[in-house]
């Protein structure tokens, strides 16, 4: 299994293969990689290489695709195989939150967006809910910007703020892992810098796996990087090493813009 350091892995992907068409062809082929706890792991690779598919396998969002199936191997999170029948995907997603490419706040107030997951988990005292909302918004570096308008619609926020609100909504339920699928691709450079800074802060508390098309972003924010090509994991290394001295020629060709 590819692992870049001696740190304790929280996610262990072991010889994992995955198909979108009932096993006729594998979109992911025998992927083995471990993501250490409280580190940022970046998945990079050309479009269609399977990086988002793998990310979505980590919280079983692919379950929503009827014809999708695992054809080999397993994914363990905190030592538990997440694809066994006894694992409830809803419970899994409490521990493995996700932030998407296009920010997607609910058409509700800022407060209700952050409180949404907590409300789903059951009734809470209003004061506890208030504390949790404030903590999450502070954690997402958004509190100072919205504290005076918590009841305003989330849709009135800027794009960068909406994405940070989605991150606040994710961390409100206190997950162990945050998955991010190109979280900055729809943001301007300043909003991107805010989100990247937030990721740097969040990794003290959470394990983050991020799919990004920006090599510069991967070098700035991730500790380890995995390069995928045509459904295979080509290389997994500490980020600095992967971008300065890649072991595999295909990695070097891709990161330096030589892919034909």
């Amino acid at each position: 299994m590819e692992t870049s350091s001696e740190e304790r892995p929280i996610i262990e992907i072991d010889d994992f293969s995955f198909s979108y068409n009932r096993g006729e062809t594998d979109t992911l082929k025998n992927i083995s990689v471990s993501c250490p706890e409280k580190k940022v792991t970046a998945f990079i690779g050309p479009s269609g290489c399977g990086k988002s598919t793998l990310l979505r396998s980590l919280n079983r969002i692919n379950d929503l695709v009827d014809t999708a199936c695992i054809t080999n191997g397993q994914i363990r999170i905190m030592g538990q195989d997440i694809n066994t029948p006894e694992v409830d995907p809803i419970e899994l997603r409490k521990n493995v939150g996700m932030v998407f490419q296009k920010y997607n706040p609910f058409p509700k107030s800022i407060y209700d967006n952050v409180a949404y997951g907590l409300n789903l988990q059951g009734k809470q005292k209003q004061s506890d809910l208030d504390d949790a909302v404030e903590k999450s918004l502070r954690g997402a570096a958004l509190w100072d910007e919205v504290k005076d308008r918590l009841k305003d619609s989330a849709l009135g926020l800027s794009g960068g703020q909406q994405q940070r609100l989605c991150i606040a909504r994710t961390i409100a339920v206190n997950p162990k892992i945050i998955l991010m699928d190109e979280p900055c691709s729809a943001l301007d450079p300043i909003a991107t810098a805010h989100v990247e800074q937030l990721i740097n802060t969040l990794k003290q508390e959470y394990t983050i796996v991020i799919v990004t098309h920006s090599m510069q972003q991967a070098t700035r924010i991730s500790d380890n990087t995995a390069f995928f090509y045509l459904g295979e994991l080509i290389e997994f290394s500490p980020t600095k090493e992967l971008f300065s001295n890649p072991k595999n020629k295909r990695t070097e060709d891709y990161v330096s813009g030589r892919f034909g």
């Binding site: 090599m215 510069q216 971008f243 300065s244 001295n245 070097e252 990161v255 330096s256 813009g257």
Partner: peptide, 10 residues
Amino acid sequence: KYKPVASDLR
């Protein structure tokens, strides 16, 4: 302009 990496950066 190009933010080179790997052998290009070196």
